[in-house]
């Protein structure tokens, strides 16, 4: 198994690397086309805003190569937080920006009235169905660590893998075929996060 963690200069790449090492995998941090082609799994971490993330992705990642490996060849892919949001068609943080459009949807600010933003802290993640490969062995009352103000609104309900509640119910995990995305940070979610990453790497 070869795990490639993409690094477009957006923070917490090392955290994902460290957790995978801790659970005894041997990931590599690289944007190299050959490494991406050789990889069995590709992970896109991220923190920050949609437009700056997309700009860095366009500048630093070989998008053609990624689309070929992931969308055409079907390599398992996991986007984390901003790495999930940029999979969308369009994002509305600080203006309107095009995303990668791998999973149809838009990224908008959480619609909260009583609560404060960002949504920061531990929250439950409810898998949509029992037979859910990414959440295998993870109970519905397990908590994951979130820190975000924007969320992924999937155009197709079928692509919603799990939801969470922060005043409104939002998609905390999405899936379209081999492309997975999670809004929370498994790499900061202790035991539950380890389980989820192990599940992803079994795919």
């Amino acid at each position: 198994m070869k795990i490639c963690i993409l690094d477009y200069g957006s923070g917490n790449v090392a955290s994902v690397f460290n957790m995978l090492k801790f659970i005894e995998f041997d990931p590599e941090i690289s944007n190299d086309k050959k490494k991406i082609r050789d990889a069995s799994h590709v992970i896109l971490p991220g923190v920050g805003s949609y437009n700056s993330g997309m700009e860095k992705i366009k500048r630093k990642l070989p998008i053609d190569c990624l689309e070929n490996e992931i969308l055409k060849k079907g390599k398992p892919f996991l986007g984390i937080c901003l790495g999930m949001q940029v999979l969308s068609t369009v994002g509305y943080e600080f203006g309107k920006y095009q995303g990668l459009n791998w999973v149809e949807g838009e990224v908008k600010e959480l619609d909260v009235k009583k609560s404060i933003l960002p949504h920061v802290g531990w929250n439950e993640v409810n898998a949509e169905s029992k037979n859910n490969i990414l959440f295998n062995n993870i109970d519905n009352d397990e908590n994951f660590y979130f820190v975000h103000s924007y969320h992924f609104k999937s155009f197709n309900k079928k692509n919603i893998l799990a939801t969470s509640i922060y005043e409104e119910t939002f998609a905390s995990a999405i899936r379209k075929d081999n492309v997975f995305g999670v809004q929370f940070h498994p790499e900061k979610s202790q035991k539950s996060g380890m389980k989820l990453l192990r599940n992803f790497l079994k795919i």
């Binding site: 090392a14 955290s15 460290n18 957790m19 090492k21 801790f22 660590y145 820190v147 940070h185 790499e187 900061k188 979610s189 202790q190 996060g193 380890m194």
Partner: peptide
């Protein structure tokens, strides 16, 4: 610390 401690 971040090698062993998986929380913010």
């Amino acid at each position: 610390v971040s090698k062993v401690c998986f929380m913010p």
